[in-house]
Amino acid sequence: MTPKFDKVHLKFKLNGSSFDYDDLKEVAYSLVKEGEVYEQVIGNFLLDWLDDRDYVLTKTSGSTGLPKSIRIKKQEMVNSSVMTGDFFGLEPGQKALHCLPGQYIAGKMMLVRAMILGLELDLAPPTTIPSYDHYKAYDFCAMIPLQLKNSLNRLDHIKTLIVGGASVSSTLQASLQDVNATIFETYGMTETVSHIAVRQLNHIDNKTSHFEILRDISIAKDDRGCLVVDAPQLSKNPVITNDVIDLVSKSEFDIIGRYDNMINSGGVKLFPELIEAKLQSKITQRFFIASEKDAALGEKVILIIESKTNDLEHSVFDSLDKFEVPKIIYNIPKFVETANGKIQRQKTYEEIKA
C-alpha cells in the first residue's frame, strides 16, 4: 500500500533525531530562522511540504532554457520515492546522506524519500567537495558528477550512490571501477519528479549497461527519435523529451544526444554528445561541442574550451570522423553555469561572441 503525503514514517530521522509530522514544522521554522543558507532552503521546502496544499512549486534547472517553476503533486513525489525505494531495496532505518541543493527536484526528493521510506537522513552543505563523515556508513546517497569526482577517495562507507544532474563522462566512469560504493547514473527531470531510469556504472564486469526504467513506467520514441515517458504515477500526461535515444528494449534505452543540439553539417546529422565522448580522454579542460552557421555546410562544428588559450594539438581529433572535426576552437576563462553547476551552452557561446 502506497503511503500518503501527509504521513511521516515512524523511523524517519533528520540529523540523528526523530520527528513526527507536527514536530517537523518546528524544525522547519528553526532551520529558516537560524540555519545556514542551505538549511534555510530545506526549511522552506519542509514548510511547503507540511502545508495544506497537495502540490509544491519546484524550479527547473535552466540548463537548456530559462528556469521556470512548475507544480508537482506531493503524492507524485511520494510515488517516485516508493518506486526508487523498491528498485534499490531501501528499508526503514537505513541511513542516507543529503548533500544536494534543496531548491531543485533532486534535493527535494532526498528529503521526501527519507520521510516516506523511514530513512535516517544526515544533511551536509551542497558544496562541490561534500563535507561529511566519510567513516560513517551510509546506505544511500545522491551527488552530481563534480561532487562524485571530488569524493572518489571518500566513498568506502557508502553502499549505493546515484549521480545525476549532468551526464557522467567516460573518464569519470573509468575512475569508479575500484570504488566500493555501487554507483548508478540517473535519468530524469523535474517534469518526471526526479529520475525514471538508472544505469549501473561500476561492478558490472565490463559489460555494457543501459538505462533501465523503474517499475510502472513505459517508454517509446516519437517521430524525431526522442524519448517519450509514460509514467501515470508521476505525471498525468506523457512527458515528451528532446533526448534522442536508442530503444534497446521495452525497458532499456541509451541516450544519443539532445535533439535541439543536433548539428546538420553538409547533410550529415551530428550529435555533440557523441563527439564529446570521443574527446573526453584527450582534453583535460572542460569543453563542449556546438555549431555555427556556415555558407557551404549549413552548420559547422565548433569546440569551446574552458581555458585562457585555444591551443590544442591536432592529434586530439584523430579519433573523429571528417565532419566531426571542429572547424573553429574558441576559449573562455569560465563557462556560464546555472545555480546548480550545469553548463549553459548557449549563454557561454553568446558571451564568447559578444
Rank of each mutant, 00 (worst) to 15 (best):
R113A: 01
V32R: 13
M189I: 09
A231I: 12
G102Q: 01
I275S: 08
E34T: 13
S80C: 09
S30D: 15
E306Q: 13
Y132I: 05
S81E: 13
L121V: 07
K11Q: 12
A114V: 02
D294S: 07
V316Q: 04
I240P: 00
D243A: 08
Y138V: 06
N331K: 09
Q103C: 05
D6N: 15
D178L: 10
G188V: 13
P238C: 06
L31K: 09
Q173H: 05
T60I: 08
S307I: 04
L90W: 02
V228C: 10
C226D: 05
A295L: 13
Q200W: 08
K13L: 08
F211R: 08
D6C: 03
K282R: 15
P145K: 09
Y132K: 08
L57F: 12
H98G: 01
S80M: 09
P92E: 08
G35H: 11
S18T: 07
H9M: 10
T186N: 09
E350P: 04
S265F: 07
I183Q: 03
K269Q: 12
K95V: 05
Q177F: 04
L279H: 11
T127M: 06
Q280I: 02
I256D: 00
D54H: 11
K308G: 04
V239S: 03
I116P: 07
A137W: 08
D52A: 06
N202S: 06
G164L: 09
D243F: 11
A277V: 01
Q94R: 02
L303Q: 09
G16L: 07
E39A: 02
I129K: 15
T128S: 08
F317K: 07
F184E: 11
T348H: 01
E324N: 07
A339H: 10
K25S: 02
G93K: 12
T186S: 11
L117R: 12
L111I: 10
V163E: 06
H195Y: 15
H98P: 00
T2G: 00
H134T: 06
V163K: 11
D178V: 03
P232V: 07
I329Q: 08
S18E: 09
F317N: 07
Y330F: 15
K327C: 02
I283C: 08
T208K: 15
G107V: 07
E120Q: 15
V268I: 15
T182F: 00
S175R: 14
A197T: 10
H157I: 00
E292G: 01
K334V: 05
N242R: 12
Q75F: 01
Y132T: 07
H98E: 00
I328N: 10
Q344I: 14
Y135Q: 15
Y29D: 12
Q103F: 11
E91W: 00
A96L: 03
M77S: 03
K221G: 00
H134N: 14
L234P: 08
V112K: 02
E26P: 00
V37T: 06
G65P: 04
T84S: 15
T127L: 14
Y259T: 05
I144F: 06
K300E: 11
F140L: 12
D156T: 10
D230C: 06
P326D: 10
L172F: 03
D222Q: 14
L121P: 10
E313I: 00
P101Y: 06
K269N: 15
A197V: 13
A290M: 01
T309A: 02
L312S: 04
T208G: 01
K95T: 10
V32W: 04
Y138W: 03
I302N: 08
A296G: 00
I329V: 15
